[in-house]
Simulated assay, not measured.
Amino acid sequence: MLKKLLGLTTASVLALGLAACGGEEASQEAPADDVEGTEETPAEETASHVGEDVDFEIIGIDPGAGLMNITINQVLPEYGLEDDWNVVESSDAAMTAALKSAYENEEPIIVTAWSPHWKFSEFELKYLEDPLNLYGAAEDIHTIARTGLDEDHPNAYQLLDQFGWEPDHVEYVMALVNDGANVEEAAEQFVSENEELVATWIESVETVDGDNFTLLYVAWDETVAATNVLGHVLESIGYDVTLTQVDAGPMWAGIATGSGDATVGAWLPTTHADYYEQYEGDFIDLGSNLHGTALGLAVPTYMDIDSIEDLVVE
């Protein structure tokens, strides 16, 4: 049975020693006859209707996420949105709850988004085009281990180094959970249904006898799924595994200080770039365990908007 420590705040983690330290411009120039509405409905009002429909709010996630940093400090100012738009600090769970409510009622909503995530299989969504490419290219999710892990737990280290899967794998686990399965049960089901894949992770790995091992993770659905799957596999070779949920900063600090053994939820090179730079030299980067991620702003496909530029109010 995996042991879980859930919902630790930054303060409690410190106690454990985890923390060191509108419309396009063409619409403005269009003749009055081409603008919908009467003379009392100027082009400017038409151009800003998307913002008005969502109260000029973009529903975000936890404030420590790189996705939030990019959105607030790069996307808003570079697209000229900072004076009109507000990014609401939230969480993965709160963001998806707001999205679910809006989607079921066909109401407009704009959210910070990333893939892989179950919301893209549950709802018909689209990323807004990012002409300035501020969200960058697809990211990888890396496995990060504490220094000395290869000597202290060589078999776990080898398993971590060999761990890798595809977006459809993790989305399958997330979908099981979203459909009502317990995450531990979903992880066990995935492992039992993908024996050939799991065999590549544990190839040449020897069993142990109850060695303690701690995985740190943030409460992002794909990271929760990956952590539980790996935790299940570690237990199958004899480790006594504890899964500890923390925020992104304490997760990196915990690996750097050795309070946690590893994480399989490091988004690079963008989302966790600041933490990577801050703690570089105090951890081991085992490389990518998943390719093909994406970051950006997403909306339901029923919304008549295609680009971040469409959010500009002229």
Rank of each mutant, 00 (worst) to 15 (best):
F190S: 04
G37D: 14
T46D: 09
E222N: 02
L128C: 07
S307Y: 05
V205T: 07
G281V: 08
T147D: 06
K4P: 00
A97N: 06
D209S: 11
P167Y: 02
P250L: 14
E25W: 06
L99S: 02
Y302D: 13
W267A: 00
I305N: 05
P269W: 09
W114C: 01
T244K: 03
H169G: 10
L125P: 05
H169E: 13
P77Y: 10
L286W: 01
I202K: 05
L297T: 06
D168V: 14
A199N: 12
W252A: 09
L128R: 07
P269E: 13
D211I: 06
L176R: 14
V183W: 02
L99G: 02
Y217Q: 04
E309D: 15
L311R: 02
M174N: 00
S101T: 14
E277P: 03
E106F: 12
E122V: 09
H272M: 02
G7T: 13
E206T: 06
A98T: 06
W85L: 08
L268Q: 05
I237A: 01
A294D: 08
R146W: 07
H142I: 00
G136R: 08
A11C: 07
N86Y: 09
I141F: 00
A256W: 07
W201N: 01
I308A: 06
S91W: 00
E52L: 12
W267Q: 00
E106Y: 13
D247Y: 12
A138N: 13
D240H: 00
W220F: 08
A187K: 00
Y127I: 10
I255N: 04
D304C: 05
D274A: 15
T223V: 15
A19R: 12
A262I: 08
Q74R: 14
E106H: 14
I284M: 10
S204E: 15
S115T: 14
G254R: 09
P108W: 08
P300N: 11
F213V: 10
Q162H: 04
I255L: 12
L14V: 09
L234R: 01
V313Q: 09
Y157W: 11
E45R: 09
V173C: 07
Y302K: 12
D92R: 01
E309I: 06
E193N: 14
A253W: 07
E78K: 15
A26P: 03
E104I: 03
P108T: 04
D209E: 14
D211V: 10
D247P: 04
A94P: 00
G265D: 03
A256Y: 11
L128K: 05
G281R: 10
G180V: 08
N182Q: 11
E122T: 13
Y135E: 11
T10W: 09
G238D: 00
T257V: 14
T41E: 15
Q278L: 12
V312G: 04
T227Q: 02
V313M: 05
A253K: 08
P269R: 10
E122P: 02
L6M: 06
S236R: 02
V35T: 13
I255K: 04
G148A: 04
I70M: 13
H153K: 13
A225S: 03
L290I: 15
A262E: 06
W252Q: 08
E314T: 11
M1C: 03
V50Q: 01
M251V: 08
E44S: 11
E106V: 11
D282W: 04
D306M: 05
S90C: 03
